[in-house]
Design a protein around this nucleic acid. Sequence first.
DNA 1: AGCATCTGGTTGCATACACAACTACATTGG
DNA 2: CCAATGTAGTTGTGTATGCAACCAGATGCT
Lengths: 157, 157
Amino acid sequence: MPSIAPPLDSPPWTEHELAAWRGFLQVHAGVTQALDAQMRAEHGLSVSAYEVLMFLDDAQDHRLRMSEIAGRVLLSRSGLTRMVDRLVRLGYVTRCAAESDGRGLFAELTEAGLEMVQVARLTHRGGVRRFFFDRLNTTDQLALGDIWTRFLEVDRP
Amino acid sequence: MPSIAPPLDSPPWTEHELAAWRGFLQVHAGVTQALDAQMRAEHGLSVSAYEVLMFLDDAQDHRLRMSEIAGRVLLSRSGLTRMVDRLVRLGYVTRCAAESDGRGLFAELTEAGLEMVQVARLTHRGGVRRFFFDRLNTTDQLALGDIWTRFLEVDRP
DNA sequence: AGCATCTGGTTGCATACACAACTACATTGG
DNA sequence: CCAATGTAGTTGTGTATGCAACCAGATGCT
């Protein structure tokens, strides 16, 4: 994060800048909202909750340290604690102590969680396809992937 | 919003699809977070609050009906009520009745609100430039504007 | 060993938001 | 003209989230 500089000059946007920025915000809002509504309607899960289950599913033995998850999902540590609370209450996840580190906790998928994440994954994929990719032609998809990759490259040293 | 279809088939993502989607989410999260932090640090305003002030500033006589604002900002009507409450408490906005419609209310910028929005606008512009545009070359900016415009065209008949 | 410090995770508190119910005014149809 | 219905905005309630304070276990320094 760059340090805060004084707003010396800030010329108004050009036409295409406005389209690039406002469009970005609008598309994001629309797609994430549609996706979230669909996930809630079909599985009673927020996208955040789904992502936690998904990362667990992808992990070795379907288990991850709390801090590992928090790093991947866009969620603070306290937020993750409560999210996992909810998933435990729903029966999709259990907590278990890490044998090597007395402080650490694993979150681990239950049988029910495993089944849930498998169907939810299909819904989620379908949603992203319908709400996002189906509105982009192949050229646009390639261009976007390329643009974001270069955009984010700056952050990782 | 299209009706919910059964997730018949949902093939996993290709490499570039993943980059286009994940990158989109990551860039959005990063930019909006940086922007929000900057606006809070320099003016004590969330980006949502700033946007309300900005729309008022742009409007005729610096006043708008509540529902007008709610439509432009991404905020529910109740959310807007409380946001305007806050702005009134901060002294940037006043409420006044609409003469033609006994139900309606206008939110109107105060002198202080006018001054605030003028400096906040510079900060915001600078932030969007620094956190977003400075990381995109001109070609990318044009491409993005074009992509979003076509993406959103479907929605408006 | 023993104290200071660090790290992983949870809890208390405050904030921000949406949905649904509600109030007050407007509009429309008989 | 007045009842039914519609519309603008607010309030009650619940949920999601972050920050800061906290606890417990680990690590490091002397």
